[in-house]
Amino acid sequence: MQDMQGLVALVTGAGNGIGRETARQLAARGATVGVNDLKPEFVDAAVDMIRAEGGDAFGVVANVSTREGVQGAVQAAAAHKGRFDILVNNAAWVRYQAVPDIQADTMDRMLDVGFKGVIWAIQAATEAMDPERGGAIVNVASTAAVRSTLNSVVYSGIKSGILGITRAAAAELGARHIRVNAVCPSAVPTEGTQRNRNADRDAKRIAATPMGRLGTVTDIAQAICYLASPQAEFVTAQALVVDGGVTFTNI
């Protein structure tokens, strides 16, 4: 698993859930990982966990909903060891609202974190990555980008936009040896998704999934690590659906 030795990564929204597990998995593969979150206590807990397992991690407390916050986070990661190789755009702020109930402040915050923040992070990473060595960017989208659910107009729109951002950035940044890909997880139990889950809904999802279970944060993190790794050096502009087969089957 030590295929990322010497590489420096930043994972946004890594205080818990998919982001925290991704940071953990990157560190297990030898990368030095910047753990970003808005809450210092989440950052400290994640960094302590990774270090206790023998990994190399450092905290980056920053608000990635602003251009300045994103730039500061990337610059801090790049300054840690004098290089920057991997960006994982995982941070999101999500609320599900029916069309008549969509509120401007809710939509603005979702866009700031989950859409604008991704663009600002890609911009900052492009400047931080060595133009000859390049690097890898992985954006966390969702199966909602290709198969939407109720009350998800804003969320599905943002995640669909992430796929467009991914392809456009891959086309533009390939000349700089920067690969840009996305992962599309299905419903994964995390601290952040708990409010939108219940036993009946989970049972229906499991019944519709060929693999017969819900995904885990480890499933998603392993896919992200592959796309970020040298093993995927000729993979770019892709959207890897990690969902146990539920999106493209009907059982």
Rank of each mutant, 00 (worst) to 15 (best):
V11H: 08
T12A: 01
T12E: 00
G13M: 03
G15T: 06
G17I: 05
I18D: 04
I18C: 06
I18P: 05
G19P: 02
G19Y: 02
R20G: 00
R20C: 02
E21L: 02
E21Y: 00
T22C: 01
A23G: 12
A23Y: 06
Q25C: 04
A27V: 03
A28R: 15
R29K: 12
R29S: 03
R29V: 03
G30K: 08
V33Q: 09
G34N: 08
G34H: 10
N36K: 03
N36L: 06
L38R: 15
L38V: 15
L38M: 12
L38D: 00
K39Q: 04
P40C: 05
E41N: 14
F42Y: 03
D44K: 02
A45Q: 14
A45Y: 08
A46N: 06
A46M: 07
A46E: 09
D48I: 01
R51S: 14
E53K: 11
E53H: 10
G54A: 11
G55N: 13
D56K: 15
A57T: 05
G59W: 09
G59R: 01
V61K: 02
V64E: 01
S65D: 05
R67V: 00
R67P: 03
E68V: 00
Q71N: 11
G72R: 00
A73S: 09
A73K: 01
A73T: 05
V74M: 09
V74N: 09
V74H: 12
Q75M: 14
Q75R: 15
A76L: 14
A76V: 10
A77T: 13
A77S: 14
G82C: 12
G82N: 10
R83E: 10
R83T: 14
F84R: 01
D85L: 01
V88D: 01
V88H: 04
V88P: 02
N89H: 04
N89K: 06
N90L: 07
N90P: 05
A91H: 05
A92W: 02
A92H: 03
A92G: 04
W93G: 10
V94M: 08
R95C: 06
Q97Y: 12
Q97A: 15
V99Q: 07
D101I: 10
Q103R: 14
A104D: 15
D108E: 15
R109P: 00
M110S: 10
L111Q: 10
L111P: 03
D112F: 04
V113P: 08
V113N: 08
G114P: 06
K116T: 00
G117W: 12
I119F: 08
W120Q: 05
A121Q: 04
A121G: 15
I122P: 04
I122W: 05
A124S: 13
A125G: 09
E127Y: 14
A128G: 11
D130A: 10
G134I: 07
G134C: 09
G135M: 09
G135F: 14
A136I: 14
I137D: 03
V138E: 08
V140E: 03
A141K: 06
A141L: 06
V146L: 13
V146Q: 10
